[in-house]
Design a protein around this nucleic acid. Structure first.
Lengths: 236, 236
DNA sequence: TGTACATCAGTGAACGCGCGTTCACTGATGTAC
DNA sequence: TGTACATCAGTGAACGCGCGTTCACTGATGTAC
């Protein structure tokens, strides 16, 4: 009757915590994170605003919970995609990129919450670091696999300055998946990674309006190019 | 005594308009665009809040003015850089990239204002389109020059779907500088362009914290890689 | 198993704050004759 | 050049709103004996 049995109170607490987060997410989806309001959340759930404080110590705490959830959602979307087997590196990379973009299109405000400009006055605590890493680990694993299979060839190397070598060595040491990735491959990976999020952000934040009309075609093609840049072969 | 002579009233109006924008910019720099407040601006200038309405019809109008100013500032920073002569394509590209990043580092909140997530509840009017284009035109001119000089060789072509060709044709038709740019070169340019802003946004919005420490070295190197991707030569 | 006490969810009122915008007014600057 | 009227910058009060957070309280759920 300790860890296993849950009291009615504990169950109710868990459910209501979830409901609060869901209402908050709905509110963020409607009008953005900056205008997230505890009172509005309470109103939507038909409870008095002061009661929300039984579940979250402050508005910032609630925001943090949303950010963590968002990172986790992207992470698991990416992991799920990565689990699909028997594909070439290029197919897997495009699949990963599409999964991330698809999530962003489905949750534009959540995307803005984590990859857009920081919410003013809000300082992210360190709790958000590890969920933020999940999606990156998927990418690193993908690179590692493709190096192992020979699909990435890094014989052509762009020389880089010493301090950058040091930073890349840090990535290699930190990420479990990245132990066999050379500096050249990591640098290419970062090139593609920033291109991926740059492309999604441009689309989401309206910088391609009246320029690109078929976003799907544009994105797929650009990600195909990115895959080739990583693999080290350009053109056909 | 018509268009040339300016009355004291008109001069005062111009000056105070500038002062209001400056105060607003200072406020945005301190706490972000979402919390820009007409009343706070008025307070800082020692005037009564209702008087700001003699200069800007609403808070959104003031925000629009700031956005236009920000785009113009990036545009002229880029144009200034581009005016430096006698350099290779790679040098010019890196110079342009550095100019944009430098402006972003000097004006983090202005960068967030235009390239971060949109301000909630604010809808950008069409007035912002043409200033937003300035910096892009600089890049297109740079590409065109490098094609002319033979520094960009587009013999290796990545095949792309028809709708993307149509969109790229639109860019060619719209931008005066881009008339001689092939679809392949435009696609490469977009690849580098999204990489550029993706890299700056990652840095500005904290997604490289504890990963990259020497941001200057990282950025320069990544932009060197981008230049090579555009030019069509990888590795050394 | 039954009772006494402790814990905790939820209430409702209040504090103190800032916001965008409107309006009727005063007084200085500009313009037409 | 001098006067009469029109324009416009700036004032101060007000409307109506929403916010985060605290606090003393009630009543239901959980726990120890």
């Amino acid at each position: 009757m300790a860890a296993v049995t849950t009291t009615a109170r504990a169950r109710a607490r868990a459910e209501i915590t979830t409901e609060i987060k869901a209402a908050a997410r709905r509110q963020v989806a409607e009008s953005g994170a900056a205008s997230l309001s505890l009172r509005a959340v309470a109103r939507e759930l038909g409870m008095v605003s002061s009661n929300v404080y039984r579940y979250f110590a402050s508005r910032d705490d609630l925001l943090t919970a949303l950010i963590i959830d968002a990172y986790d959602a992207i992470g698991s979307a990416a992991e799920e995609e990565a689990a699909v087997g028997r594909r070439t590196f290029e197919q897997r990379w495009i699949g990963l990129a599409r999964a991330i973009r698809g999530w962003a299109l489905d949750h534009p405000h959540d995307y803005a919450l984590v990859y857009g400009s920081p919410v003013p006055g809000y300082r992210a605590p360190t709790d958000t670091v590890s969920p933020a890493t999940r999606v990156t680990l998927v990418a690193l694993r993908l690179l590692a696999d493709a190096v192992r299979s020979g699909e990435i060839r890094a014989d052509a190397v762009v020389p880089m300055p010493r301090p950058l070598h040091a930073d890349l060595a840090g990535i290699r040491a930190g990420g479990l998946a990245s132990a066999n990735l050379s500096d050249e491959v990591l640098a290419r990976g970062l090139q593609a990674w920033t291109q991926l999020f740059g492309t999604i952000s441009f689309e989401m934040f309206g910088h391609l309006q009246n320029v690109i009309h078929d976003y799907d075609a544009f994105f797929d093609h650009q990600m195909r190019r990115a895959a080739r840049t990583i693999a080290g072969r350009e053109g056909t």
